[in-house]
Every structure is written in structure tokens, then in C-alpha cells.
Write a protein that binds this DNA or RNA. Structure first.
Lengths: 302, 302
DNA sequence: AAGATTGTTTCATAATAAGAAATAATATTT
DNA sequence: AAATATTATTTCTTATTATGAAACAATCTT
């Protein structure tokens, strides 16, 4: 028998000075009202009402208990409504994890827009190469660029990034502009090497994917470093548009071989959807999804 | 599902940062711990913990709820223990109802002794001829002299009163001392008449009860008045010892025809025993019961 | 790779919450 | 005085729910 319910019933009986009256008000049977009061009396070992079929008097203990019970019920209601409220309007600290470049270039901007819209929220943005584990890392939300091997979390595609070949205008002026993928063999390619194995770039020609082994004198596990290098004119790089889209738009870099561009990389928001998603998380996902619709600003130029 | 139990489980899980740990501590199955937390999450519409099988983090809402829940649980415990305590040691106002003479002569004295022993109790003594209804009159305890027609309340015989014929020494000196019941026919008898019908006194002789119709020039529905009248030497009265025992002991009155004395009248404590009797009531009944053991002081003289 | 540990789910069973109706006590109305 | 109405409790049956053992799934530790 739910003690909180019994308390509510007891309180109603005390307020109405009647079992039947309380039953009506709570739309419960008289029988249950009676049983709830007995439930409390048993658990307390105390009579709460002196009653006959026709008269009802609250006992002294009953009266003392009544005051306390009301305070407790108020607290419970307050707790529940404040919790639900906390969940219905975005509030609290939003903990986000993402890969460094995407986070630094775009999430910080998105966040500052979001926080302006929802002043009750504060944010904590943690940038890391690691594949995030929401519980382990104690974050609300993670972003990931590229395909996911399935995890127990829910993911939602919120944007995409083109992977484009690029070089600085100066470099191209000096070394010529490649027109076909094969032309890259004669170029100094800036190689992204997170692990020690990939030095091939994908190209798509007439629906067919081909991989071309490239070479160059810089290998690096930092996309940021490659970006800087390519802007400096060190060579040709393949980088995601969320890193270099703005550089292309600004003329610091030129996009090459766009006709051979491979499939876009998906960008996912990863969150824990097991039933309840707090308002801050839900609204941020929606916000960022809409922000990058229909196509994220970093994916287009000219 | 008892919400208070769910709260306790939730609190234990949050404190232990583990479902299994909480289960052990509460000697509950892991399954139930899990279900109780889900019960709260469902009723609040909120995730309280982010959890995988191996890791557990309380959510921000969970943490806020945790604080509130602990306060609520403390309040509930406090309320229950204070209520039980209120019931285990005598405290509060003890409301008593009794017939005027008995109450005035003896209960007031007993009460003042009792209240010295239990300083937490205060008393309210209401004297009335009416047959008391505990709930109607909102009293904890009533006393009644004489047989009871059965009521829904519990009664306990706590003492008895002899009914003795008496007169003042002066009266007897003037009018002679009756030796047999029949002698009363020649005496001025002071007649107690609560209703308009009884002017007979009972006597017992060799196990046989006989009623003798008496007469006199004072009829009164107040025992007190008859007592005063008899002390003043107005005539012979039949009065209960709780009224005149002390007068006989002091020599203000003399007991007559003791060999023919009818059965003692029982004196009952009447209370509402439906399951729980508060400490103040229980202890007062015990106190007064022992106070009048083995025989109340008003029943005997030399 | 095997075993241990954790939270969840499933499942069968025992407990119990629920209310309709009968009961008991007492007021009110006729 | 009798009939009716109202109140709290009890009884009884039914539908729901609580419960934990065991199976499961997902890691972590060895």
C-alpha cells in the first residue's frame, strides 16, 4: 500500500472531517479510504481518528501527524514539480564531447547561439579524439564525424562534411592545378595519419570508387596542422569541409577535383535515449539540427 | 509500488553509486532495486541515472532530486518517530469525563498525583451526569459509577463504592439509631431522585435482597446536596462511600445498618480500545487502578 | 579466453489493491 | 414509531502488482 497515497487520503479525511467526503473528493471507494487510514494507523501503531459510524474526531496524535504529513506532501509535490519543470524547460549544465576540430570550429559557435536562446543552460565542451562513452565520460551528448560502429547509444545524423582536395592559390600557381586524381602523383600531398596505415585518398568517377596512393613529405595526425600547412602553401591536402570550407570561401584555399569527390561523411549527435531525454539535451540536438539545415554553411562556396 | 520505498531505494543507489550495492544494503534483489528506480523515473518522466551495466552516473536532475528526497525521507522518519514517541511516553492533553461527585471528590486528587508523575501531560476534567459518548464528547476517557448497559466502548472496573446508610451523630442522638432496615420507616430519609420514581432502598439479609420504601421530607437529584443535608443532621441518607467515606472517617457522619449493606457499585473506566490506546490514557487507567488497590480508601473506616 | 560482476528482463507465483455489496450503527425524516 | 438515509467497516471476489530466481547482456578482470 503506497504510503504517500495513504498520507494523501489521511490528509483529505482530516480536512473533510469525513471518510465518505474524502472518498468523494478523491474519487475512491469508502472502503479504500478506510483501509488507507488503517494502513497508516498500523504502521504508526497509533489511532489517528476516534470514530463511530456517525462521528469523527481526530486524535491528538492524529492532529500532530496531520501537520507533519501536510508539510511532507507539500515537499513531495514541490520536489516533483520542480523536477518535471527542470525537465520541461532547458536548464542546468550541458556537457558535450566532440572531436577537436569540429568542436572548435563549429560547436563553440553553435553553443553560443544556443545559450543565448536558453539562458538557463550553461555548457561544458570537452574536445577529444577518443570515441566518447557518454556514461564513462559523464557527458550528456557527443558529436562524431564519420561512420559509427554501433554502440548502445542513440545517434542522429545532424549534418555532413564533404571531403575535398585543396591547396593554396600560391601553391597551385607554382605547381599547377591537378585536373584528374592521377595528377596528384606529381604533387606533394599532406597526409593525415591518425593510425600508421592510410596514405590513400578516395575518388569517385562515374559512380566508381578508386583509391589512389598518395605521397608527400608531411605526415601528421592533426588535421589542424595539415590545414595550416596547406594554407601556407606546403602542398595538397584532403580535408573535411567543416575545417576548410571557410578557407575556401575566403580564398585562402582552392577546392580541387570536385568532380571526383567521394561521399560525404556523416556527422552524428550521440546521446542516451533510454526513455527520458532532458530538455537541455533535446533542445540542443534540435537546435543544431536546424542550424545546419538544409546544408551546413561549410559545405558550399561560389 | 510504494513511492516512499522507491525513494529510499533511489537514495541508497545514489549514495552507494551502485544498484547491486544498494540491493545488498537493503537486502533486496537487484531486480527490485532496478524496478524501484524505474518506478520513480516513470513517475517523474526523468532519467535519474545514466547507467550501463558497468558504470553509473547520477544525472543532474537525479542529483537535484536526491537532495530533495533525502530531506523528505528525513521528515518522514522524524514524523513517524515523533508520533511513536508521542505514543510511547505519556504526553499531551488528557480529556476525562465523569459524574460530578466522583470526579470532584476523587478524580481531581488522582489527577494531580498522576500529573506530578507525568509532567508531559495536562488534563481536562469535565463533570457531567450524562452517560458519556467518547467520540461525541471528544474525550479520551470516561468514568462511570454503576452498571453499564453495553456500549461500543471498552470498560474496565477500576474500583467500587459501598452504598451505606448514614446520619450525623447529632441526628442519631436526637432520633435514635436504627438497628434494622424496618426501623427506617420511623426516620426522616433523604431521598435521592434523579428520575421521579425511586424511593426504595435495597438491603441484604442472609443473602436475600429486600427493598424498603422509605419516606422523608427532602427529595433531591443532587447527591452533594443530600450529603450536606445529612451532615447538617436533617435525616438519614443512603450515599455511596466515594461521597461520604471521608465524612464517616472524620466522624461527621455515622454508618448505619452495615450488616444489611447491598452489593457494592462498580466504578468503570470507559475508553476506546479499538486497537491503539495512547500512552497517556493507558498509563492513567493503570495509575488509577493501582491507586485504589486493594480497596479504595473511601470504602473503609475502623 | 574464461570468469566475475553489473544492471535489465523475463517469468511464475504470491501478495495485495480495489471496489461492490453486505453489515452495523446511528441520524433524520416521515 | 417506523422507514429512510448516511456513515464507517467488513467481506468477498477479481484484477493488478510486487517479488525474486534465473536468464540475459554488457563489460571488466584475470
Amino acid at each position: 500500500m503506497d504510503k504517500v497515497v495513504s498520507m494523501r487520503v489521511f490528509s483529505a479525511v482530516a480536512k473533510n472531517r469525513s471518510f465518505s467526503g474524502a472518498a468523494k473528493k478523491l474519487s475512491l471507494s469508502k472502503a479504500m479510504v478506510s483501509k488507507h487510514v488503517q494502513n497508516l494507523e498500523n504502521s504508526l501503531g497509533v489511532r489517528l481518528f476516534n470514530r463511530t459510524t456517525r462521528k469523527l474526531n481526530i486524535t491528538e496524535v492524529g492532529s500532530a501527524y496531520y501537520d507533519k504529513v501536510n508539510a511532507i506532501l507539500t515537499d513531495i509535490d514541490e520536489a516533483e514539480s520542480s523536477i518535471s519543470q527542470l525537465n520541461s524547460e532547458p536548464k542546468g549544465k550541458l556537457k558535450i564531447m566532440a572531436q577537436p576540430s569540429f568542436g572548435a570550429f563549429h560547436l563553440s559557435r553553435a553553443l553560443s547561439l544556443y545559450l543565448k536562446k536558453y539562458p538557463g543552460v550553461t555548457a561544458n565542451l570537452e574536445l577529444s579524439q577518443r570515441i566518447p562513452d557518454l556514461v564513462e565520460d559523464d557527458v550528456d551528448l557527443a558529436f562524431h564525424v564519420g561512420e559509427l560502429n554501433d554502440s548502445m547509444y542513440v545517434s542522429r545524423r545532424i549534418a555532413s562534411a564533404r571531403r575535398v582536395i585543396c591547396a593554396s592559390p600560391e601553391y597551385l600557381h607554382e605547381n599547377g592545378t591537378p585536373k584528374k586524381p592521377e595528377d596528384l602523383l606529381n604533387h606533394n600531398c599532406l597526409i593525415y595519419m591518425p593510425r600508421n596505415d592510410i596514405s590513400k585518398w578516395e575518388f569517385v568517377e562515374k559512380g566508381r570508387t578508386q583509391k589512389i596512393k598518395i605521397s608527400g613529405d608531411i605526415q601528421c595526425n592533426s588535421g589542424d596542422a595539415l590545414r595550416i600547412a596547406s594554407i601556407q602553401g606546403c602542398g595538397v591536402a584532403q580535408l573535411p569541409t567543416y575545417m576548410i570550407g571557410l578557407d575556401i570561401q575566403a580564398g585562402r584555399l582552392e577546392a580541387l577535383l570536385e568532380d571526383y569527390e567521394p561521399e560525404k561523411q556523416p556527422i552524428y549527435a550521440i546521446y542516451n535515449d533510454r526513455k527520458y531525454l532532458s530538455a537541455k539535451i533535446r533542445t540542443f540536438i534540435d537546435f543544431i539540427y536546424e542550424l545546419y539545415l538544409p546544408e551546413p554553411y561549410w559545405n558550399e562556396w561560389t
